[in-house]
Design a protein around this nucleic acid. Structure first.
Length: 377
RNA sequence: GGCCGGAUGGCGAAGUGGUAACGCAGCGGUCUGCAAAACCGCGAUGCGCGGGUUCAAAUCCCGCUCCGGCCUCCA
């Protein structure tokens, strides 16, 4: 199986650390609103990868973790806005996420950790203590604990900026927006934020507060999959700063990058422009489901390679709907499904080339099997 | 400004050296009282533009145009 690794910018042959124990970690969401179609893409793409890995290495050999960042500035802000308890609000949108993922035919991950879990929070505190002890992290009194991105030397020679294609010098020197002059480098980021009155908080040796944005993924992945695992995925937007910072923490803590292969899906666009929360041009999965069948949405997403943008339009969704309208009744009527054609499987194993695979489903007996495999039947 | 992608028939989308998968729409046919559905068939002499390399290029090289993304909120 080949996969494109953002870390090396090349398509590589995937070699598991342990074929009996394949480990995949995908960044989920911060549950402060209903998930939109941009969130649906990694849901579906990595679900197909999960299915492919299970098919290749055996169902019990694959572990898939997808987190919820249920403690975050955006959640607190939204909760204040609505006069709702932050934890209740997060819980509500986690349910919403689960509903949508299930509707879109995604298998439940093996693990779905949350930052607010006691074990995770304790892990975060321990992790930060280690970084402080090592001198990779420092305190800004009255503010929080920060990671010094120039102090992360690991034995694998990782340089901050490699994943996202940035140069450390540029990031250290190029203070674009310098909100916090107490930081040693402009690229330094918060591991822990000291609480302001009324905010959710946890006690630590350096003061009560809550975790920064990136730390949770380093800790949860380590707790569930170990400090070295196979695959780490997420949306393209997470490449920087989230994944870059996650790597920085883990390298600083463990001396090596925590995941071998870094996978990033491209964006959903609308009229060629990125669909995003801050653009205000997003469509929630629930709204899309009012207009189109879940299978059509799933097929629409899989009709384009995951590293290329997909444009959301009525035309595209209707085309997917029409294809299924013709295909599904025939596929459902198949009583003697045939094995998946090799060409179908080969396409999927070539960096998850779902559009190519969809063109190689073969006879209707084979197609039924393929559709079922893809979660479309 | 720095870095990274993309441009393939009406639309979407594979294909990264050997002569353009697949899907949607369209068109023709079979069937039907007509239509729909279903089934069968057709469709780019050409892959943003200009050069170059090669026996051979959508695929490699050089230059150009346009579009998008990231540069510390976003899957």
């Amino acid at each position: 199986m080949k996969l494109y690794n953002t870390l090396t910018r090349t398509k590589e042959e995937f070699t598991p650390l342990d074929p009996q124990n394949i480990r995949l970690y995908v960044c989920g969401v911060t549950p402060y609103d209903d998930p939109h179609l941009g969130n649906a893409r990694p849901m579906v793409v990595f679900d197909v990868l999960f299915r492919l890995l299970r098919h290749t290495y055996g169902e019990s050999a694959v572990k898939y973790a997808r987190n919820f960042t249920d403690i975050d500035d955006k959640i607190i802000a939204r909760a204040n806005e609505l006069g709702e308890d932050p934890a209740t609000l997060a819980e509500r949108f986690i349910h919403s996420y689960h509903d949508d993922a299930a509707a879109l035919g995604c298998l439940p991950p093996t693990y779905e950790p949350r930052v607010s879990e006691t074990q995770v929070m304790e892990g975060i505190i321990t992790f930060i203590e280690k970084l402080l002890k090592k001198g990779s992290a420092y305190e800004i009194p009255g503010d929080g604990i920060y990671l010094d991105i120039t102090q992360i030397d690991g034995n694998d020679g990782y340089q901050y900026g490699k994943l996202s294609g940035n140069k450390l010098e540029d990031l250290v020197a190029g203070a674009r927006v310098e909100a916090n002059t107490a930081k040693r480098n402009s690229g330094d980021f918060a591991l822990w934020k000291l609480a302001k009155p009324g905010e959710p908080q946890w006690k630590t040796p350096w003061g009560a507060g809550r975790p920064g944005w990136h730390i949770e993924c380093s800790v949860m992945s380590e707790q569930l999959l170990g400090d070295k695992f196979d695959l780490h995925g997420g949306g393209e937007d997470l490449q920087f700063p989230h994944h870059e910072n996650e790597i920085a923490q883990s390298v600083a803590c463990h001396g090596h990058i925590h995941a071998n292969v870094w996978l990033h899906n491209a964006f959903i666009t609308v009229g060629g422009k990125r669909m995003g929360k801050s653009m205000g041009n997003f469509t929630t999965i629930k709204d899309a489901l009012e207009k189109y069948s879940p299978e059509a949405i799933r097929l629409w997403l899989l009709q384009t390679h995951y590293r290329k943008p997909v444009d959301y339009s009525d035309e595209a969704l209707i085309a997917a709907e029409n294809r299924l309208k013709k295909l599904l009744p025939k596929a459902l009527a198949v009583t003697n499904p045939a094995p998946m054609p090799q060409g179908f499987l080969d396409a999927l194993k070539d960096d998850l080339n779902t559009p190519k695979a969809l063109g190689k489903m073969g006879s209707i007996e084979e197609t039924a099997t393929c559709l079922r495999f893809l979660g479309l039947l």
